[in-house]
């Protein structure tokens, strides 16, 4: 068969799949999408459609979603849906090494969505950006937690090693006063490591500075944009508000999407804050 008719055949299967998907019959939809892929292996949309259906199953097949989205991205990099579904699947798969991957995918999906919002200010992108913002923050937190666990493990090992050296010296000394000197050092060492955030509870103070907080969601900002009066909000929040009412939330002056400007330095500052305090990404 000529390649073009194979493509047509794939499109016919895709349409059938879409109809089953709309009817919430995800199992049949998956079968049709699979047949479509057999006819046309280079159409990246077929893979994301199958991923969407797999995510909707009563018991979602995250493994399959991961494979399909990766294939889809290989064919087409600028692929919002594939990055979005991939990040969702990676979060659910809870693979010990994939936190960075899901964070990267979620961020890429968010970036593509922002691009889309800039082209069509109040289009589909505006309704997706909220979900994507939350997903990025969630992935950020999980990634940070993983790094934090590793850091604590390392630092905990160091603490144990140093304490063991001090204890060994203490056991070797002759007189009582020297022994108590070493005991003091062991105690001091423990308190120093506790201040560094290990040894039971997190000893560091958990406080989010006001400049990092979006006044609409009260979350830390990921992608702050500034209004005409210099106040910044999370992009997703202010877009959501402007859908309701084209007013500045603070002054009630007329405000539209076109008046918003990204606040790049604040974005960097928030990023830096979250790198140090990943727990704050999703509190």
């Amino acid at each position: 068969m000529a390649p073009s008719s194979r493509k047509d055949e794939a499109m016919a299967y895709k349409e059938k799949g879409n109809a089953r998907y709309a009817a919430k019959d995800y199992k049949s939809a998956i079968e049709f999408y699979s047949q479509a892929i057999r006819c046309d292996q280079l159409n990246y949309l077929l893979y994301t459609n199958r991923a969407a259906a797999n995510l909707k199953l009563d018991k979602p097949k995250y493994q399959q979603v991961e494979i399909d989205c990766s294939t889809s991205i290989e064919i087409e990099k600028k692929n919002l849906k594939a990055h979005y579904f991939l990040a969702m699947a990676l979060v659910e798969l809870k693979h010990p090494e994939w936190q960075e991957r899901s964070h990267t995918s979620a961020k890429e999906a968010h970036r593509l969505c922002v691009e889309e919002c800039q082209m069509v200010p109040m289009g589909k992108g505006a309704s997706n950006i909220q979900v994507l913002t939350e997903l990025v923050l969630k992935c950020k937190k999980e990634w940070w937690e993983k790094q934090e666990r590793e850091r604590l493990k390392k630092i905990g090992g160091l603490h144990a090693e140093l304490a063991a050296i001090l204890r060994a010296r203490k056991d070797n000394v002759k007189c009582e006063s020297e022994a108590s000197e070493y005991q003091t050092k062991i105690d001091e060492l423990a308190s120093v490591f506790e201040m560094a955030g290990i040894g039971g509870k997190d000893a560091r103070i958990k406080k989010v500075p006001d400049w990092a907080i979006d006044d609409i969601t009260f979350s830390v900002m990921l992608d702050p944009v500034m209004t005409k009066n210099g106040k910044s909000y999370e992009r997703a929040s202010i877009l959501n508000h402007l859908k309701n009412s084209e007013t500045d939330p603070l002054t009630r002056e007329h405000l539209t999407v076109r008046d918003l400007r990204p606040n790049l330095d604040l974005k960097k500052a928030c990023e830096e804050f979250l790198d140090q305090n990943g727990w704050a990404a999703d509190w």
Partner: peptide
């Protein structure tokens, strides 16, 4: 402030 028009999400 409590009406749809006077309300602001901040």
């Amino acid at each position: 402030l409590l009406g749809q028009n006077g309300w602001s999400p901040v």
